[in-house]
Design a protein around this nucleic acid. Structure first.
Length: 822
RNA sequence: GCGGAUGUGGUGAAAUUGGUAUACACGCUAGACUUAGGAUCUAGUGCCUUUGGCGUGGAGGUUCGACUCCUCUCAUCCGUACCA
């Protein structure tokens, strides 16, 4: 057969079009609605419809699709859906830039990307697809928000946001570049603004505790990150009473403030107290010129810096000229404002014990504040355990015990109490933007904040808006916000804030599980959700390790408690994939280092694109793009396709192992090694790269022999193993060679293939590899040692053997030292 | 700053979890076939001062034996709460 014909013979375009049509016609990937079959719910995180798919998507969906197809082959009822995370800022940015309506832009992008994805031959359920900007989706989300409000989980509060006075708009952190607005370069202000919050802290304990149920199922680093993020800590809360002079200085407006500490044991070591720059007392001092102008300006600048900038900056602070009274000793303690005290945690006020806290120490050192040691031990700051000193009646007590005792004592004296604090902050869900789900509330002069009536949902976005980037288009709309109060029917104002897009991605996994025929009647169906959830395998980028996954866990639990379903955790197993890089950098349009998946599919076909992305690196790792390696993936598929000529059609023959050549035996070993590997790869490790490598080795080994039976068996198994990865060509070959019978059977490993009659032992002397000996399988340890010493005689000259180690089937290690007297 | 990860040939990576470091693939070199080659096939390919020595970011340590365990350290990446 000439090479030219081989090249012509593998035609991915033709094969892929053929199979994609078959799958479409057969509706091959729609799950069954019977809720009794064994099931697998395989979900790759849904995409944001940015316009075109990128390699990160290809990777995400290639992984999910391989897993879904694997389980389908094992007769599971498989739910493998896709949808569109369709609200969000890029649509508004595009609207400003290209003068196109966000809705149009979004739905056009979805149409385009849908075509791109379908060219990859992904086995998605088509009937369950939706976009989160569909009013049918918004409708139910708004109902959930109203129910959460009824349950006391949604509240309104004022907080600081990034504000650009020029654009008259709130800026996301990513829209702030070096303290300035990304669009107009105006300096960004921090501004107080009311917003809606979901009380995730109420669920903090459950969210933390349930991480344990995910052990071994989620990557441990994600569990650690979430645990640290929730940041539960047990400590002491107490009030600092202002000294009489300070009360007077503050015009009698303040008596005291509350601080939280996890180090109650060090309370006798307090040498100052520090307040966040936005603390009410600091504000009062600045506004009433109780510090020098120069210092007031610095404090204002500090308050205006973002939290992250402040923490990253060097320690900075200013004495406020007031003092508080130590709750136990009655000493007067100076009060400072400091940039390392966060307004968002522990009330924005701390007691400072420089002797036993690194930050406090650094600050005290810089500003020459007193440092008082209260735990015996090493160099200051001393943060380890030890016995107390300078601590009145608690002296000589172990500090861990003193922690409890001091809290108990203060509770008894009614001057403090034990408290659990979380680093986790409540979830701000409102955004001053157009392209989001409207928050379904109305502001009524008589009734206050009133939820929209359920029967009036959805509160839909008006289409006729002008998006300029200045202000909130909903707020500026001529008529939209004017409405009547659902309660008293008087004139009222509609809420113009919309929901954070994380809200939509917090329940989509429940919506997918609900049969589409019910989508008009219910948001999520209890029986459906109880059957399909948790998601048996969730796949997505590591960048979502904290926020999205935590919010989705929280939302799922809340909906459970509101009676919508009975599931505790939405994602049973999680796989976090690494980024796709080019020349060591994240692919991005601005760097011009993108690879267009469309072009790749056109040139090589979807199977090659999928094979390459799974072969190039394990999914958990970053994937470095390499054009010529793609060629290699293509060559492997073509080679596999070509080898169909080696197969006896439709007939698996019985193989007599004893009659096979050495090469044929090796080939069988390689084939069965690949098979042996496969279930662990598809179900647990997801190291597709090693499975593909094993299949390549098997094919290479098959090529070195010519036994028809071994060839047939080899191709039969390899096609089965690779079908989830390269489904088009695998189905094509399997149909032609085996009537696709090899996809139906569960293949079993034949142990006799691995039986060896001799074993190669490596001989190490003094920890270095020196020789090899081949012995028959039942050789005794003594004989192996003798053989090893013989083989390594050269290195044993003048050496004394100190220790002999035999690792069965592997190696002999002889520990040696020079003979004395030589 | 804080939290989490990653680091192995020229490149992407593998290593049965403490037991022959570099499987598989890319690239490169040489050869074969060819009018031609961005095709295919064959052989070779960690590094060096090559009877040997050195090698898994760097420095120590534990062990008969370390990519794997421990301590310290450097670099890169992810997240850091209004990007998704």
């Amino acid at each position: 057969m000439s090479n030219r014909i081989i090249i012509m013979s593998y035609n991915p375009q033709e094969i892929e079009a053929k199979w994609q049509k078959i799958w479409d016609d057969e509706e091959a990937f729609e799950p069954s609605d019977s809720l009794t079959q064994k099931k697998k719910y395989i979900l790759s995180m849904f995409p944001y419809p940015s316009g075109r798919i990128h390699m990160g998507h290809v990777r995400n969906y290639a992984i999910g699709d391989a897993i879904a197809r694997y389980y389908r082959k094992q007769d599971y009822n498989v739910l493998h859906p896709i949808g569109w995370d369709a609200f969000g800022m890029p649509a508004e940015n595009a609207a400003i830039k290209y003068k196109q309506h966000p809705k149009k832009w979004t739905y056009e992008n979805i149409d385009y990307m849908k075509k791109e994805l379908s060219a990859l031959g992904l086995s998605f359920s088509k009937t369950r697809e939706f976009a989160t900007c569909d009013e049918l989706y918004t409708r139910w989300e708004q109902e959930f928000i109203i129910k959460m409000h009824e349950a006391g989980l949604l509240y309104r509060e004022s907080t600081t946001v990034n504000w650009c006075e020029e654009c008259h708009t709130v800026l996301a952190n990513e829209q702030v570049e070096e303290g300035c607005c990304w669009r107009c370069e105006n300096e960004v202000q921090l501004k107080e603004m009311p917003g809606y919050y979901l009380d995730i802290i109420k669920y903090a304990d459950e969210l933390l505790d349930d991480l344990q149920t995910l052990e071994e199922k989620w990557p441990s680093q994600v569990l650690t990150m979430q645990g640290n993020w929730i940041g539960r800590s047990q400590g002491l809360e107490f009030d600092f009473e202002l000294s009489p002079q300070s009360k007077a200085k503050l015009g009698g407006k303040f008596d005291k403030y509350t601080v939280f500490t996890t180090r109650a044991d060090t309370i006798y070591g307090i040498s100052y107290s520090a307040l966040a720059a936005e603390h009410q007392i600091v504000k009062y001092i600045v506004e009433n010129s109780l510090v020098e102008d120069k210092i007031a300006k610095k404090i204002v600048a500090m308050a205006n810096a973002s939290e992250r900038d402040r923490i990253q900056a060097d320690k900075e602070g200013y004495a406020l000229g007031i003092t508080v009274i130590h709750p136990l000793t009655g000493e007067e303690i100076p009060v400072w404002t400091a940039n390392f005290v966060l307004a968002s945690y522990g009330g924005g006020a701390v007691m400072a014990v420089p002797a036993h806290d690194e930050r406090d120490f650094e600050f005290a050192h810089k500003y020459d504040l007193p440092i008082k040691r209260v735990i015996c031990g090493g160099e200051l700051p001393y943060i380890d355990e030890g016995l107390l000193e300078n601590s009145a009646e608690f002296n000589a007590m172990k500090n861990t015990k003193a922690k409890e005792k001091i809290i108990a004592f203060m509770e008894q004296e009614n001057i403090g109490k034990g408290k659990i604090n979380f680093k986790l902050r409540n979830w701000g869900v409102s955004r001053q933007r157009y392209w989001g789900a409207p928050i379904p509330f109305v502001h009524c002069d008589s009734c206050g904040l009133v939820p929209e009536k359920i029967e009036n949902l959805p509160v839909a976005l008006p289409d006729d808006v002008e998006i300029t980037g200045a202000g909130n288009p909903l707020d500026k709309h001529a008529t939209w916000k004017y409405c009547t109060c659902p309660k008293c029917s008087k004139d009222a104002i509609r809420e113009t804030d919309t929901l954070d897009t994380f809200v939509q991605s917090s329940w989509y996994q429940l919506r997918f599980a609900t049969q589409p025929s019910k989508w008009h009647e219910v948001g999520i169906d209890k029986a459906d959700v109880n059957y399909w959830l948790g998601v048996d395998q969730y796949i997505g980028g590591i960048e979502h390790a904290i926020l999205h996954l935590l919010y989705a866990r929280f939302f799922t639990k809340v909906l459970r408690d509101l009676g919508y379903h009975d599931i505790d955790e939405p994602f049973e197993r999680l796989l976090t994939q690494g980024m796709v890089l080019m020349d060591g950098a994240k692919m991005s349009k601005s760097k011009g280092n993108t690879v267009d998946p469309d072009a790749l599919v056109q040139k090589y076909g979807a199977d090659t694109a999928r094979l390459f992305t799974l072969f190039a690196a394990p999914p958990q790792k970053e994937l470095e793009w390499n054009d010529s390696a793609v060629d290699g993936a293509f060559r492997f598929i073509r080679k596999l396709y070509d080898r169909k000529s080696k197969v006896e059609h439709r007939a698996l023959v019985e193989i007599d192992q004893s009659t096979l050549s050495k090469e044929s035996k090796t080939a069988r070993v390689k084939v069965y090694e690949a098979l042996q590997k496969s279930s662990n790869v598809y179900e647990k490790s997801f190291a597709f790269n090693t499975l593909i490598a094993a299949c390549m080795e098997a094919l290479n080994a098959l090529d070195k022999q010519d036994d028809l039976g071994v060839w047939t068996e080899g191709i039969y198994i390899i096609l089965n193993l690779l079908e989830p990865i390269i489904p088009h060509v695998a189905n094509e070959l399997s149909e032609e060679l085996f009537d696709r019978e090899n996809f139906k059977a569960v293949l079993e490993v034949k142990d006799e293939v691995f039986v060896k009659d001799s074993i190669l032992y490596m001989v190490m002397i003094g920890g270095k590899k020196r020789a090899e000996v081949e012995v028959s399988a039942n050789t005794s340890q003594e004989e192996i040692l003798t053989a090893a010493k013989e083989a390594g005689a050269k290195w044993l000259k003048n050496m004394q053997i100190v220790k002999e180690i035999v690792v069965p089937n592997k190696l002999v290690n002889l520990a040696v030292k020079p003979k004395i007297g030589k």
